[in-house]
Amino acid sequence: MEDSTPIPSTTPDDRAEHYLVLLSEHERALAAYVHALVPDRLDAEDILQSCKLTMWKQFGNFAPGSHFLAWARKIAFHQILNHRRSTKRKPLYSAEPAFLEAIATEIDRVSDTLSDRSEALHECLKRLPENQRRLVLLRYYEDHDIAAIAKETDRTEAAVYKLFSRLRTALNDCVKARLDSSAA
């Protein structure tokens, strides 16, 4: 293909296809964005679902060729604020609008580096020692909480919490190191 700019869609099928192509390209980044702003994993997933529907409904307003992810983040942010207002049960950590605003702005500021970060993180994950891989799988893949992992690995909760704190620090350092070395 000579021209990578998407051609404005005309028929409904074209439009759906165009939307799905853009969505599949940016889905992971959008998911990370919503999860970053919404501490509760299930809430984040619900918001992400309704967000994709809203984006589809409003896709007519999206200017072809402009920044899809930035447009999507804007819609997601509104969904998060709406969800916060509409939800009846108060989540464990409800975030204040001022706080959400500050975090969203900061993410927008660093958004250019996020896809590099994502790649660096993948590389860092592959290099984790066996015991830390297991922790990642238990926490994020099996969706166990700290208490369950403590039980499973025969440790105290405080010890498991420390392990995760160390794991995240190690991953963060690894990501930073990779970004620095590729920037140099």
Binding site: A32, H35, A36, R41, Y140, R168
Partner: peptide
Amino acid sequence: VEKRWLHATLAA
């Protein structure tokens, strides 16, 4: 944001 993003990416 750095830490949260890492955590969020793993969750997502």
